[in-house]
Design a protein around this nucleic acid. Structure first.
Lengths: 158, 158
DNA sequence: TGATAGTCATTGAGCGTTCAACCAACAAGC
DNA sequence: GCTTGTTGGTTGAACGCTCAATGACTATCA
């Protein structure tokens, strides 16, 4: 890919991209900041707690939890270790597969999540939904759904 | 803010928020990955180089550069130190304010940026604009512009 | 049964970011 | 001048994430 054959962004696309980057930066800083400041929970950890709280028995295999919370196994492994130190999650052996580990949300973890949720939701509202019309919310959902579709591997190798 | 008086998200808002989070996660991972893998430049550093390249004389005071690249002073200070190690940026004293530091993009830095740009733009296209209609690009820009507006301090204290 | 490949999950090092603490230089008031 | 408060910028520790390497177990197939 040389400079000459590059399909550079149009002025509209430039503007959209930069506005998008700035907005995401502002938004995530606000959301992350609120959660961390008011509840001491990084947003990534919060997502893990939410996924666990939605799972049957408040428990999930590590790989499933990683998929659900869009995080790598490594990231999840580190994160669960930290959450375990706080007493919010516990690890159990998997009955059917001795390689497996099951992460389970403890009562204390559920309580921490429930305590953190109202403030977090309020922040998400203030930073996003309060600034958009219902129509824009629909548009945003459609746009993000289109983007979310994974392109698969970037490599041409098998 | 208790649970009872919380304005919880509607089903539509829930969906929009989660789709947004997933899409951002996928998108930023792809963009960051391409840039890092193909050019060895973190996206945050790339932004700094871009802002410098657009400044008169390829130079900017640290604070101005921090504002332009939406980063904290601390972050910028660390980043410029790394970029200086690579020979892409140099720091100079400010003539009018002896506290000031001026960051200037070197020729090597400009060359690195020009070498990285085509692949980066292509990735942004592939991950975002190729998946959206022109109308959606306009909608996205409007939505992000609405979100970007800073709410100011979260605190009610002066 | 034994060998090989694939999956599940963890580990540690390296990197970028954040936060709080800090120093140096300017600015405003007395 | 001197003091006080503010601004410009850096520093180091703490933290989360990524990447590559590793160990443990399962699955497949000869």
């Amino acid at each position: 890919m040389t400079a000459a054959e590059t399909r550079w962004l149009s002025a509209d696309e430039q503007l959209a991209w930069r506005t998008f980057l700035n907005a995401c930066s502002t938004l995530f800083a606000a959301v992350e900041g609120q959660l961390l400041h008011d509840s001491g929970i990084p947003h990534g950890y919060y997502e893990i707690l939410v996924r666990l709280s939605e799972a049957p028995g408040h428990a999930l295999r590590m790989t499933q939890l990683a998929d659900a919370s869009t995080s790598s196994k490594s990231r999840l492994s580190h994160a669960v270790a930290r959450l375990e130190e706080r007493g919010w999650v516990e690890r159990m052996l998997c009955a059917t597969d001795r390689r497996g580990q099951i992460a389970r949300l403890t009562d204390a973890g559920m309580a921490a999540l429930e305590a953190a949720a109202p403030g977090h939701v309020e922040q998400v509202r203030a930073s996003m939904f309060d600034k958009l019309t219902p129509e824009q919310v629909q548009q945003l959902q459609a746009i993000m759904a289109a983007i979310e579709v994974c392109d698969g591997a970037r490599s041409t190798l098998i």
